[in-house]
Simulated assay, not measured.
Amino acid sequence: MDAHPQAETHVTAISILGAGHITPSFLSRKALLGPLLRAFVGGKPLPSIPFSGRALGYPEYTEALRKAQEVRAEKQWNNTIHEAQRALEVLPDGEAALTLLGHAQFQLGQYNAAASTLAIACLTETDDKDSMVLLAAALRRSGSPTRSRAVCLQVLDRYPGEHRAWAALGLAQEAENNLLASKASFRRALTISQYHPKYKQHLKRLEEKLQKSGD
């Protein structure tokens, strides 16, 4: 018998279903949950959970986040805001809760608030292209097309094939009255998503505006 038995190690795995494109912070690539579980299964020393993995220790956060995702799926935007804010009371820098809050604010037409919320969420999760595109839309609708354009370019630098970012860039350029650049961006979006009806409508409208202006 081993005179020095090994201490037991326990791991709690939390799964949130129905998250859509929202990536909870403790399941993001930065959280290293995969390496942690592989190390546990392989009997190796467990790596430390980094800053973005702190949500694992807050079941109240994950419960509120789960509820926020449920009501979001039902498009109950006010309830989504309530549950996301409840999650943020537990973990103020939770990226997933911030993203859900920003999405709900955007859907309710609270574009300034949505832009502020999503900007905070994207500070650490700049690889979340969905949130970045939504941030660009919120900035444009809140009257900041130049900042919106900058966010779109940041997304396209990492994901040049992201057609939504090209379309968002075109809208920002149009808001800046740069119609030729906007037309080029929508053409690029259509080369990626050839049958997108809204892109075709925007491109046709831009061509009509350019024709009237003589450009």
Rank of each mutant, 00 (worst) to 15 (best):
residue 9 T to I: 15
residue 176 E to M: 14
residue 49 I to W: 14
residue 29 R to S: 12
residue 91 L to K: 01
residue 13 A to F: 10
residue 147 R to L: 12
residue 214 G to L: 01
residue 193 S to R: 09
residue 132 M to C: 01
residue 94 G to R: 02
residue 147 R to A: 15
residue 103 H to M: 11
residue 206 L to V: 00
residue 204 K to T: 05
residue 210 L to A: 05
residue 10 H to Y: 12
residue 94 G to I: 02
residue 57 G to F: 11
residue 3 A to R: 01
residue 38 R to S: 14
residue 148 S to D: 04
residue 135 L to V: 11
residue 191 T to W: 15
residue 209 K to F: 05
residue 164 R to F: 07
residue 214 G to S: 05
residue 215 D to H: 11
residue 66 R to C: 07
residue 31 A to Q: 04
residue 169 L to R: 08
residue 104 A to S: 06
residue 146 T to F: 15
residue 182 S to N: 03
residue 187 R to N: 14
residue 83 E to L: 10
residue 212 K to H: 08
residue 92 P to A: 02
residue 145 P to G: 04
residue 65 L to Q: 02
residue 16 I to D: 00
residue 194 Q to Y: 11
residue 155 V to D: 03
residue 206 L to Q: 00
residue 62 T to F: 05
residue 56 L to E: 08
residue 144 S to H: 13
residue 58 Y to W: 09
residue 153 L to K: 14
residue 171 L to A: 14
residue 148 S to Q: 03
residue 169 L to K: 04
residue 129 K to A: 12
residue 49 I to S: 15
residue 124 T to P: 06
residue 79 N to E: 15
residue 79 N to L: 14
residue 78 N to I: 06
residue 4 H to A: 03
residue 186 F to L: 08
residue 117 T to R: 04
residue 146 T to S: 15
residue 33 L to E: 10
residue 149 R to P: 08
residue 81 I to M: 01
residue 203 L to P: 00
residue 193 S to W: 06
residue 39 A to Y: 01
residue 118 L to Q: 08
residue 143 G to I: 03
residue 163 H to F: 13
residue 103 H to A: 08
residue 1 M to K: 09
residue 199 Y to G: 07
residue 68 A to R: 01
residue 25 S to G: 15
residue 165 A to G: 04
residue 202 H to Q: 14
residue 199 Y to N: 02
residue 85 Q to K: 12
residue 190 L to N: 05
residue 211 Q to F: 14
residue 108 L to D: 03
residue 88 L to K: 09
residue 197 P to C: 07
residue 123 L to C: 07
residue 177 N to W: 14
residue 70 E to N: 10
residue 67 K to W: 08
residue 183 K to A: 11
residue 181 A to F: 03
residue 154 Q to W: 07
residue 66 R to T: 14
residue 36 L to D: 01
residue 81 I to G: 00
